[in-house]
């Protein structure tokens, strides 16, 4: 039934948005694709799992996951990108070093989890199903959509309504001019990577709960989806990433529901191809975003 699929699609889109926003935020400010973003997402899920397993409450696990993923993301920036930026080779060098960081994180996770699929204990998240207007919506789905909405709102408020956010946008816009106005870009980078990682970690926990399945490579498909979404939205564009998450999440849910399973990816990627044919810089991208070196 269509209405049911739309509800499912919104939930999926919310998770994609959390993942993709940080991905695009980092690209916007540094013109870098952080390919360890998927591993950071996975780390969020793992941290929440181990907190719950150790007897902690789920909300505690959620908060710890957000903090841990945020810090991990800051660490990745310092280790993988900061030195490269000084040499000016971060664009391609950064891709390689962040793949490396992702592999290291995943290998550690593989060791820690013993390559097992981890599952939250039964009823970690209460199984409650609401039925109304012929729809079946679980409390978990409501929580996922609500959490995504709240986090996206907080991010938007932070970026567009606070003096910190103004500084982030200033560095994104013109780093030299921002430095001349007294902004230390390194501090801005750390804060941005923290936000990006925290959102990815939150998405990781939500996905871990939704499928009740956590493993060391769970982030990789999301890295691919995230990549598609930020290109579709326009590299570096926050509203673009939101819109593209919705388009992609809905498209994926609906094609899975209504098309033979072999066709899903074909249809989605054909549609993306068409969109990019008409809007090569993405739904809301600037022309210069495609030209990675353009802004230096």
């Amino acid at each position: 039934m269509l209405a049911q699929q739309l509800v499912n699609g919104i939930v999926v889109s919310g998770v994609y948005a959390l993942f993709a926003l940080g991905f695009t935020l980092v690209f916007g400010i540094q013109r870098i694709l952080n390919l360890a973003h998927g591993a950071i997402f996975m780390t969020g899920a793992m941290v929440a799992y181990y907190v719950v397993k150790a007897g902690g409450a789920l909300w505690l696990g959620f908060i710890m996951a957000i903090i841990a993923s945020g810090l991990l993301s800051v660490f990745v920036e310092i280790v993988c990108f900061r030195r490269l930026r000084k040499t000016g080779d971060e664009e391609f060098g950064g891709i390689i070093s962040s793949i490396g960081a992702g592999l290291v994180i995943m290998t550690i996770a593989q060791r820690v989890s013993d390559t097992l699929i981890l599952r939250f204990p039964f009823e970690t998240f209460p199984v409650v199903i609401f039925k109304f207007w012929g729809l079946r919506v679980s409390m978990l789905q409501l929580f996922m959509a609500g959490a995504a909405l709240v986090l996206v709102f907080i991010l938007g408020y932070y970026i567009y309504r606070t003096s910190f956010g103004r500084r982030v946008r200033a560095v994104t816009d013109n780093e030299h001019a921002a430095m001349l106005m007294g902004i230390n870009p390194n501090l801005i980078y750390s804060q941005t990577y923290f936000l990006a990682g925290a959102l990815a970690g939150a998405a990781g926990v939500l996905v871990g709960l939704a499928f009740n399945s956590i493993n060391f490579i769970m982030g990789e498909p999301y890295l691919m989806f995230g990549f598609v979404i930020i290109i579709l939205g326009g590299l570096g564009s926050i509203p673009g990433a939101l819109l593209a998450s919705l388009v992609f999440g809905m498209g994926q849910t609906l094609t899975i529901a209504y098309l033979p399973s072999g066709l899903t990816d074909t249809v989605i990627f054909a549609a993306l191809f068409l969109i990019l044919l008409f809007r090569p810089h993405g739904l809301m991208g600037k022309e210069e975003a495609g030209n990675i070196r353009g802004r230096r």
Binding site: S163, R166, R167, R169, A170, D173, N174, H176, A177, A178, M181, G182, I183
Partner: peptide, 18 residues
């Protein structure tokens, strides 16, 4: 070198960072 995607007011506010 204005911050092109920020409003005039926001540009001035960023100046206060200094």
């Amino acid at each position: 070198r204005v911050f092109a995607e920020m409003t005039v007011l926001e540009n001035l506010q960023v100046g206060q960072t200094a």
